[in-house]
Design a protein around this nucleic acid. Structure first.
Length: 444
RNA sequence: UGGAAGAUAGCUCAAUGGUGGAGCAUUCGGCUGUUAACCGAAGGGUUGGGGGUUCGAGUCCCCCUCUUCCAGCCA
């Protein structure tokens, strides 16, 4: 009977067939120990010369790493290890002998592995990450469904920049001129919230920024909820509830994978409501107390400005300094308005402040969520569009949302790969997606 | 886009300006409980590209290409 390795413990002392690949093989005279993988896990086989035919024995001798095989044998407990199973092999059929496999069970450089990404994903660590990614996305969809959110898929081809800031990828679009690849589905999601109450988008997003860091890819997946009648506090309440659900479900269902990744799960177990909420002003106070300066590039090098001036955006060292006090995600809210996007609503108590929130993951993973309450007043929004020198004509449909039954509403954007990086404790975001797209890499 | 480091066998890395090596992978042989198994043998190289200094350059100098890390932008 064909079974998958992840279910192997249900078949102890039974004869089963596994269809998979040879991960590695060791031999000791009349014994061989092939390690098999089938996509769901790995198991060590035991081949004894006296228990198999001459043909099967010789076939095992021919196997190279990643050769595909169909193996039959009896499942047994490992003689030395608890909760580990082996396959006492009685028969084997070669499906295909692999050519010398480039990814040997030794160390490799990152550029080589990236070139061989189509094979790299077979390795236990990469496969574990992709299983966790699947669990994360499944948890997100489940949370959203269970909480009354409607999946609202937004277009990838768009006629203009959403926020007017990032550089966009462009392509020809028939007789209509240029089309741009979406850098956010938010504006469309806002229209969805006015139609359906609570909606979310989950899909690929594109940024043509030449960002060569461990936290950036040019094509990434973003989840963007948008909720009618939610103010900033409602938004933050949802963020905490949502993040707790996803993290706790992943550590419950994907413990084996997190172990392969050597993830310290106790740190994730602490991700429970409530999360610390600090205003931008309070964050600036922390930076001043810790004497973290603003570093400005000048013609002849760098200049350190202290105390940290109000109104400046935070860089990596500032996020680090703010987050290190906490072992949960930190929500920094109420930002200087001039540094933020045009659609953010101003604080009624202070027009210099925008009702935005950034969520900084613990352990130095930085921003994983950016959100805000949206400007729902037609006149203010028109003013912002003019200030940001955006083409008003392109935003008429968006402005309609304020003309016809405008309501307070809020939402946020979550970077899926950044969430995966944090939960899996990855050194680099390129491992958080099957095929990472970066400014200098589009293959394979 | 700026700063730093780097490019030598299929892979990971050594090599004082003086005959380019090792481990893994591959091929062959040995071993009845191996855990990146081990032991023995073999094959495998235009030292990223171009120019220069030198009796002699993987090594020193210049240019180019590519990669990695850090910073900015952000999710």
């Amino acid at each position: 009977m064909w079974v998958y390795i992840e279910k192997i413990s249900e078949y102890v002392e039974k004869e089963v067939t596994i269809k998979g690949w040879l991960y590695n093989i060791r031999s000791a005279g009349k014994l061989m120990f092939p390690i098999l993988r089938d996509g769901t896990g790995m198991i060590q086989g035991v081949v004894s010369k006296k228990d198999v035919t001459e043909k099967v024995w010789e076939s095992f001798g021919k196997l190279t790493q990643e050769s595909s095989v169909i193996v039959t044998g009896k499942v047994s407990k490992h003689p030395k290890k608890e909760n580990v199973y082996e396959l006492q092999i009685s028969d084997m059929e070669i499906v295909s002998i692999s050519e010398p496999y480039p990814i040997t069970p030794k160390e490799h450089g990152i550029d080589f592995l990236a070139d061989k990404r189509h094979l790299w994903i077979r390795s236990p660590r990469q496969a574990a990450i992709l299983r966790v990614r699947n669990e994360i996305i499944q948890s997100i969809r489940e949370y959203m469904y269970n909480n009354g959110f409607i999946l609202f898929d937004t277009p990838i081809f768009t006629p203009n920049a959403c926020e007017g800031t990032s550089t966009l990828f462009s392509t020809d679009y028939f007789d209509l001129g240029k089309a741009y690849l979406s850098q956010s589905g938010q504006l469309y999601a806002e229209s969805g919230a006015m139609a359906l109450g609570k909606v979310y988008t989950l899909g690929p997003t594109f940024r043509a920024e030449n960002s060569m860091t461990r936290r950036h890819i040019t094509e990434f997946w973003m989840m963007e909820p948008e909720m009618a009648y939610f103010d900033l506090d409602d938004d933050m309440n949802m963020i905490e509830d949502f993040l707790e659900y996803v993290v706790q479900r992943v550590i419950k269902n994907k413990r084996a994978e997190l172990e392969i990744l050597e993830r310290d799960v106790t740190k994730l177990e602490k991700v429970k409501k409530p999360f610390p909420r600090i205003t931008y002003n309070e964050a600036v106070e922390i930076l001043r107390q810790k004497d973290v300066p603003l570093i400005k590039k000048t013609a002849n090098g760098e200049e350190q400005i202290r105390p940290f001036p109000w109104g400046e955006d935070f860089g990596a060292p500032h996020e680090e300094a703010i987050v290190e006090n906490y072992d949960k995600p930190v929500m920094v809210h109420r930002w200087p308005a001039h540094a933020k996007a045009f659609y953010m609503k101003r604080d009624p108590e202070n027009p210099d402040i925008a009702l935005g929130v950034d969520v900084l993951a613990p352990e130095g993973f930085g921003e994983i969520i950016g959100g805000s309450q949206r400007e729902d007043n037609l006149d203010y929004l028109l003013e912002r569009i003019k200030e940001h020198e955006l083409p008003e004509s392109e935003f008429q449909w968006y402005l309609d949302l304020r003309r016809y039954g405008s309501v307070p509403h809020s939402g946020f954007g979550l970077g899926i790969e950044r969430l995966v990086s944090w939960i899996c404790n990855l050194e680099h975001i390129r491992e958080a997606i099957p095929y990472a797209r970066r400014p200098n890499r589009i293959r394979p």
